[in-house]
Nucleic acid binder design. Sequence first.
DNA 1: TAAATGATGTCCT
DNA 2: GGACATCATTTAG
Length: 200
Amino acid sequence: MPLSDHAPLPRAFFDRDTLLVARALLGCRLVRRVNGELVAATIVETEAYRGAMDTACHAHRRETPRTRAMFGPPGHAYVYLVYGMHWLLNIVTEPEGSPCAVLVRAVEPHVNEDAMRRLRPVKNRELSNGPGKLTRALAIDKTLYGEDMTRPSQLWVVKGDAPNTISSGPRVGIDYAAPADRDAPWRLWITDNPWVSKAR
DNA sequence: TAAATGATGTCCT
DNA sequence: GGACATCATTTAG
């Protein structure tokens, strides 16, 4: 890949309405440098978590040590553990003080799929068709909490091919949220992409 | 200090 | 379709 393809998306890209960023991220490439190797995967599914007013968002009550990154400037990673075993990757959006983020729910291998398979040795699309699966395949965990993803050091995002069609629906696994937030179609995916996670 | 609870994945039937 | 693994974080007491 030419060097220009490695230029990270700038902070301004993330400093916008979260739903807009969640859309714009589809087709972009998540780039990871691990063990001296470069790996890239296309983002095919995202979810928008829209801050204090969104009862599905971890930051809707107040700032806590865990959610600190979401209150900070856009373009940083918000990584956390769910169910005691899975790391999930979010990218912080909107200005500092507005605790919003986009959850990356599924990716399609693009460059160096072998490295991903070594990190997560499973068959076919099981590799990265889910939020906890892709973090395993890209070696993303707590050590990347708060990482500045606008710098090409360990984890960043580069422009990709814009998808033809985008589909949307309710977010997954947020039964605890208020009905209006549960129903909001803030889960976005590339229509018909086979790497999209299975809906509940 | 203690208890409840997940922005999930895997294995079993 | 359902059970359950597994633990950091949060919230209650």
